[in-house]
């Protein structure tokens, strides 16, 4: 019986073997489909989350206002802030200036577009936009107030010394300077933030580049 069964099964087995060829190619096709789906999802997650992470750690991509070296995002503190701005504010645990309260301009380059470097010396002036008070503050790369021997890291519109034409010049350098002097940190890049408190009109809307202070690079030592 067994041998007979074997005999009768033999053609069936042979036919199965024959038909197994296309099914084999089907199974070969199916495995790459699963792999392709996994690849697609991994690609989507990696690229999507990676680009979102990159975006919220950077500066808001839209709605910027650039006046010479000074950069601001007037809509950051308004109900019209875009989703990138909201995400970036949440990420930085920041509290932006509201429209009408003030506006903050950041500069990380000088007026010729070169990165601000502590090894160089700079002169800032001669005027600033109209505001009730403005403050000019120096930060290191990480956004902290640098600790210098001078012990001051900012100037306000009330403190700065002016000439008879109401112009001012703030010197930024490592070594001591006469007049308005801010000492630069020991090394690396730095940023400047000019905050206008209670400016007239809609914040930033009517400002022009000519009103903003010029950041002039003087010389670069060792």
């Amino acid at each position: 019986m067994q041998s007979e069964a074997l005999l009768t099964n033999a053609p069936a087995a042979a036919s199965m073997r024959a038909s197994s060829r296309p099914s084999l190619s089907v199974s070969i096709r199916r495995v790459p489909t699963a792999i392709l789906v996994v690849y697609t999802l991994l690609l989507a997650l990696g690229l999507g989350l990676g680009s979102a992470y990159w975006a919220i750690n950077g500066a808001p991509p839209f709605g910027g206002l650039r006046l010479g070296p000074w950069q601001a995002w007037p809509r950051l503190g308004s109900p019209e802030a875009d989703p990138y701005m909201r995400a970036i504010i949440a990420r930085r645990s920041d509290v932006p200036f509201a429209t009408g309260e003030g506006i903050g301009f950041t500069a990380s380059v000088d007026s010729d577009g070169r990165l601000l470097d502590s090894a160089c010396s700079y002169s800032i002036g001669p005027s600033a936009p109209i505001a009730r008070v403005w403050t000019l503050t120096l930060y290191d790369q990480a956004g902290r107030l640098p600790v210098t021997e001078l012990g001051r890291g900012n100037f306000t519109s009330a403190e700065v010394l002016r000439d008879t034409q109401d112009r001012f010049s703030i010197a930024l350098s490592r070594s001591v300077q006469p007049g308005n002097w801010l000492q630069l940190p020991a090394g690396g890049a730095f940023t400047l933030v000019l905050r206008l408190y209670d400016p007239p009109g809609a914040a930033g809307a009517n400002l022009e580049e000519s009103e903003m202070p010029v950041i002039q690079r003087l010389e670069c030592g060792a």
């Binding site: 999802l41 989507a44 997650l45 690229l47 999507g48």
Partner: peptide
């Protein structure tokens, strides 16, 4: 993947 990545972003 790119289209879904846009949605994830």
């Amino acid at each position: 993947g790119l289209v879904i990545a846009l949605g994830v972003h």
